[in-house]
Design a protein around this nucleic acid. Structure first.
Lengths: 154, 154
DNA sequence: ATTTCTTGGTTGCAAGATAAAACCAGCATC
DNA sequence: GATGCTGGTTTTATCTTGCAACCAAGAAAT
């Protein structure tokens, strides 16, 4: 989005998605979509961003298969924007960002919204990375490996 | 960084961190930092970004307490950039982004690097959000609640 | 059917962010 | 004490972003 030297060529799964969600309006749009917002105007009022920007962002998200335009919902001839399966796949990322934000961007005792288990109203657990055997992994416990398998293509 | 209407006022923990890591270079710098890179030149060669941009980004990350400048390491009079505790707190976010990237930005069979458990060399488990009682939570199973407690401040 | 309002979106232009390159300082090497 | 490498800063050109104004298609009112 913001770059011309595309990241699509790297073998790093961290870098590639950045063309799709590399600007953070997109992430806020997706957050709002998870919160149930669907209409152009809803996003615009919620985020307070310029309409042209929202227009471009929505189009980009649709092109990347994160949002989908669906015909209607309340009968009006307008379209709505709904998360695709790919878009819903961003849920853990949003949660991770949310938990990090809670940890480091709020004064102790400062009010903030909280993600809770709808069934019991309790706050959700923290995300934690685990090994196959169930051990919690810290950054130092992990390493990047070149490739899952040589994948002989010839 | 990219915005002037600061997100610092919202009560949403998703929005606030965006001033700190809201530009996408920062996330790649942090990824590289998790991979052990520490020197200005290392980041620059790894990312291929302009030196002035790197300079600004590193300074911003330091100001936000995500990186820390430490005096040396190999004796040279230069400084290095090391992740702080706050910076290391971004690990789940990076992992979430990585897993999403793996899921949706690589053709089946296409090679990509893999995050593995250093101890056994096995790929790590997927991140999953759980309720207090251990149930796996999907987006629809959660809801945003206004505030943990009224927190009487008077 | 004509005005009017809302929704969704496009088009300019000014401001800000980015990139490439030149430049510079400190240290090492020769 | 010239040359070259590392780690930046400054300069300049370009590209993107955001605001504001405008516009088209419904929907609603008259």
């Amino acid at each position: 989005m913001v770059k011309r030297t595309s990241h699509k060529q790297t073998a790093c799964p961290v870098a590639r998605p950045l063309d799709a969600i590399g600007d953070w309006w997109s992430l806020l749009i997706i957050r709002d979509a998870f919160d149930g917002l669907r209409r152009f105007g809803e996003f615009q009022r919620s985020l307070g961003l310029a309409k042209n920007i929202l227009s471009v962002r929505l189009r980009n998200l649709v092109e990347h298969g994160i949002l989908d335009t669906v015909p209607a919902s309340d009968g009006s001839a307008y379209q709505e924007y709904a998360l695709t399966e790919k878009g819903r796949g961003l849920f853990p990322l949003l949660v991770a960002l949310r938990q990090w934000g809670e940890d480091y961007f709020f004064a102790p005792g400062e009010d903030h919204v909280l993600l809770t288990d709808r069934k019991h109203g309790m706050p959700v657990k923290r995300l934690e990375l685990r090994a196959e055997d169930g051990r919690i992994l810290k950054p130092e416990d992990t390493i990047i490996s070149p490739s899952p398998s040589p994948s002989p293509k010839g």
